[in-house]
Amino acid sequence: MKIAVASGKGGTGKSTFAANLALSLSKSNDVVLVDCDVEEPNLHLFFDAEHEESEVTVPVPVVDPGKCTFCGKCGDFCQYGAITVLKDDILILMDLCHSCGGCRIVCPYDAITEVPRVIGKVRDSQPDEHLRLVTGVLNEGETHAPVVIQMAKALAGSTPTPAGAVFEHQFRELVCSMADVTIYDSSPGIACPVIETVEGADYVVLVTESTPFGIHDLELAIGVVEKLGIPAGVVINRSDGLDEMTEELCRRHSLEIIMRIPFDRRIAGVQNRGGLFSQDMPEWQGRFTDLYHHIRETGGGGA
């Protein structure tokens, strides 16, 4: 089963939830935890282990000056303004290129080829016998987070390659994992990286907090899962008991509140220092396991 953990607002404790869920479930299942928050991946801070690393690249155009006639067709075609054709030179703004390959197709003189450009990496580690951690890392200054997410999910062995995907060649050597549970930790927000993460999951856990910001952003995140049509449930983190507005919002969208984690300085302290509270407070492991069974029974049909 594939569970995505998301939140509209940042810092609601999404990664902590994902890490504790993974740890608890790994006591009786094979678990793969995938850090899809590639802009700020944090899960490795909880699970220190040696990792293998491979690069994530995107193809970008290079022009053969011997063949180019400066006809300008490539520049005209590129929808992102990545190619400017000068009198006797071509300027390619790599950071604007989306790697669509159109310029290569459109060039009448076969002057364009594509070369890989590194934009990030994926790391694979095995912090525990039944727990594997796959981390996507977007390099600083790069913008194409969804590509790195796609690679991390593929490495985790849980997504089929989309038809004609840019990175097809990179998948071949990868081993497929046979995990019981795959957990995707998403980035905050509601834009393309979140979609890339959540797509293909059987169930989405939305982690929120009962503040006006939390509620406002939860509603946006609900919009995303409703649009994608994936079953979802809500976890209220750092609950101080004043949850009426969150409850009301969930009622309106027929979403179940599947867990409440109270505000507790002990929990916060363990986390801030890079620990996992379900390790220090083992009673939580049972709660996370029960939660997983509950999700399987009520929402996420897939096995």
Binding site: G72, G75, Q79, Y80, G81, A82, T84, V85, K87, L96
Partner: peptide, 27 residues
């Protein structure tokens, strides 16, 4: 998307040598 450089391309293709405008984006 890509509005700045694509507009620049229009000027380049028309052989413009001097541009007078208010502000230019980075790209």
């Amino acid at each position: 998307g890509g509005v700045g450089p694509r507009s620049a391309q229009v000027l380049i293709s028309n052989g413009v040598q001097v541009l007078i405008t208010g502000q230019l984006g980075g790209n």
